[in-house]
């Protein structure tokens, strides 16, 4: 293939340095022995120990995890349905409104979403807690799921579904036996996206969580407002590490599948 011009190399290098230096500094300084985060005083893992002994953080992490699993699962079901409607629904009353409600939450400032949901929950007298956070997170992350899934559905060869119908499958069977297994990777990435969005969210959770439920980002927020703290660095490192492992593993798995498929295809071509 063509080689990159110097300009391209420079813009890529600078861009990635910009993207990764801040995280690298976080990770390095989470192993700093000093409480002063900008002065290096030797290697230490004491902040990790303190983090694991901090009950409040562990509680918040547990709440966050529960919210994320439940909301991303519901969001995946609803988002997949919405994607199917968007791509295959044809014309129906209020289609423009529907697609508007799918795309708007992607970019809607969180303060607005959070405020409006809170006022709704108070208006209907719903007690704030884990349930309200789940409802709020499901609402905005289902839109992300539906965008991911619909981009896969758009390229889905429709004749596969027609073939299933032609062979006598009901519409539901055609979806269950043919469409779903084939779009499964997109549905899974949609779930993962919803999951991380929920793990991450500070603003909407701050509005919709009551005094009874505090999520991890809310906990982080209340301590970083007071400035940089090594404990938060340690927590960030753990989160960055988990995400990195997850993303790298996923992309390796995809790559292996692609290589295997290419090999199969070559073998088939030779056999022909």
């Amino acid at each position: 293939m063509n080689r990159l011009s110097p300009f391209n190399v420079v813009s890529l290098t600078l861009g990635f340095v910009f993207l990764y230096i801040p995280m690298l500094i976080l990770v390095v300084y989470s192993f700093n022995a000093s409480k002063l985060v900008t002065v290096w005083a030797g290697f230490s893992t004491q902040w990790y120990g303190e983090l694991l002994r901090n009950e409040a953080f562990l509680d918040a992490a547990w709440v966050t995890l529960r919210v994320a699993v439940i909301s991303s699962t519901i969001a995946t079901v609803l988002g997949t349905m919405a994607a199917y409607v968007l791509v295959r629904g044809g014309r129906f009353f209020g289609r423009t409104l529907f697609s508007g409600m799918i795309y708007a939450p992607l970019v809607m400032p969180e303060v607005i979403t959070g405020l409006s949901l809170l006022l709704l929950f108070i208006g209907i007298g719903l007690d704030r807690g884990v349930l309200t956070i789940v409802l709020a997170h499901t609402t905005f992350s289902m839109c992300f799921v539906s965008v991911v899934v619909s981009s896969r559905l758009v390229t889905f060869d429709r004749s596969l579904e027609e073939a299933a119908l032609d062979l006598g499958a009901s519409a539901f069977d055609a979806f269950r036996l043919v469409t779903l297994p084939i779009i499964a990777p997109a549905v899974i990435s949609g779930w993962l996206l919803a999951f991380t969005l929920s793990l991450d969210d500070l603003v909407i959770a701050s509005f919709t969580a009551g005094p009874s439920a505090t999520t991890l980002p809310m906990k982080i927020w209340s301590s970083v407002r007071l400035g940089v703290s090594p404990e938060i660095n340690a927590l960030s490192t753990i989160l960055i590490g988990l995400v990195t492992i997850g993303v790298v593993a996923a992309s390796l798995a995809t790559k292996r599948a692609a290589v295997q498929a290419a090999r199969d295809e070559q073998a088939a071509a030779r056999a022909a």
Binding site: L160, E162, D166, G168
Partner: peptide, 29 residues
């Protein structure tokens, strides 16, 4: 509807289900 007709179709793209074996593809209907 298509799934109630005693008519079957061979698609231009073949529309073989990529996640099923040849055997399962033929057994699908």
């Amino acid at each position: 509807p298509a799934n109630k007709r005693a008519v079957n179709m061979m698609f231009q793209s073949y529309a073989l289900f990529p996640h099923l074996t040849i055997w399962d593809n033929i057994a699908f209907g």
